[in-house]
């Protein structure tokens, strides 16, 4: 195993960056290919059923105009060039460029994701600490059972049930009103964000709790904890300064990994709670068969996910120098 690492060579960070670049290239090839296997092309999608009335020579002209007569690799490169210059396509339904739509939708999803991660940490870290304080005891069992329940309930179900109960029994349905952006009506915005963020946050609190529990139990058995205790470090300082601080490393990594789940879950949460985020943009594009919207938005999400993972990984290496030598 070691020999392959040496064989690959290079600084670990350079290698990780190279890997991320290669992944991004693969992501763009896959996204491009997905649009190619679709029935129809840009012509049928922009002319709709009228495309049937076009003559053969008109079709050929349009093919040449859109560059569809060129070889696939050339089409790919010109598409990639468009993406790099900010041309993500145009949505005729929205009457807007996909880049503009994304610029409006992305902040909504990011706000939702950040709120969800904060809620997950607020629930998951104390939960994991409580579970780890007496492994095998009742509190551990309760935490594990809750975690299993949460893992087994999909976001669409918890979201639907929560929204129905609050609307039916308490008459509280802030998401029934038009969406209020954070900058315009922060009070309304928070009310509309809190339920979807809670639903997503609870579902990723479970892996965060498990990670916290395992990390604390592992670290408690380490030599440096014994040394610190022998040195006379008070118990609660030991827990905060030595145990929890070291446990934060895997917790941060786990939060980064869960970001991808959040972006997927956001599609569902945004749909249930009518939030105009990027997940809803994908879904609307699919429903209206506007595949250029779908393609560009999926690409944006995947790139975002790759970057978040890269940053998490680099932060992890910075915080834990042991990883360097691995």
């Amino acid at each position: 195993m070691k020999s392959t690492l040496i064989h690959l060579g290079g600084h670990p960070v350079t290698r990780r960056l190279g890997e991320a670049l290669l992944t991004l290239l693969g992501v763009s090839v896959l996204t491009f290919t997905l649009l190619r296997v679709l029935p129809g092309d840009q012509i049928t999608s922009s002319y709709g059923i009228d495309a049937g009335d076009l003559t053969k020579s008109q079709l050929a002209q349009l093919h040449a105009y859109y560059g569809l007569d060129k070889p696939l690799p050339e089409q790919f490169l010109s598409w990639l060039h468009g993406v790099f210059t900010g041309n993500l396509g145009y949505s005729s339904n929205a009457g807007q460029s996909v880049a503009d739509m994304t610029a409006d939708a992305l902040p909504v999803t990011l706000e939702l994701a950040v709120l969800a991660i904060v809620l997950a940490l607020v629930i998951g870290i104390p939960g994991g600490m409580i579970a780890a304080s007496r492994p095998g005891a009742l509190r551990d069992g309760v935490a594990q059972t809750a975690s299993l329940l949460v893992l087994s309930a999909p976001v669409f179900l918890t979201g639907t049930v929560l929204a129905s109960i609050l609307a039916n029994s308490f008459g509280w349905n802030p998401n029934g009103q038009t969406f209020a952006p954070l900058t315009e009506d922060p009070l309304m915005n928070i009310q509309q964000m809190v339920l979807p963020a809670l639903v997503l946050g609870v579902s990723i609190a479970s892996p965060i709790m498990q990670t916290t529990r395992t990390a604390i139990l592992d670290i408690r058995g380490e030599d440096f904890i014994r040394t610190a205790r022998a040195k006379g470090v008070p118990e609660h300082a030991l827990h905060v300064r030595h145990v929890l601080r070291n446990a934060l490393i895997p917790i941060v990594t786990m939060s980064g990994l869960q970001f991808g789940f959040l972006l997927g879950g956001a599609v569902v949460a945004e749909q249930i709670f009518s939030l105009p985020g990027i997940g809803r943009q994908v879904l609307l594009g699919m429903g209206q068969k506007e595949y250029s919207v779908v393609q560009s938005t999926v690409l944006v999400i995947a790139v975002l996910f790759v970057l978040v993972n890269l940053v998490t990984d680099l932060v992890y290496r910075m915080v834990d120098p042991r990883v360097w030598s691995r």
Binding site: F261, L263, G264, V267, Y291, V298, I301
Partner: peptide, 14 residues
Amino acid sequence: AFPSLLLALTLAAT
């Protein structure tokens, strides 16, 4: 690199 639900959704929709 794709969030799993999003990848499944994109494939199923296309």
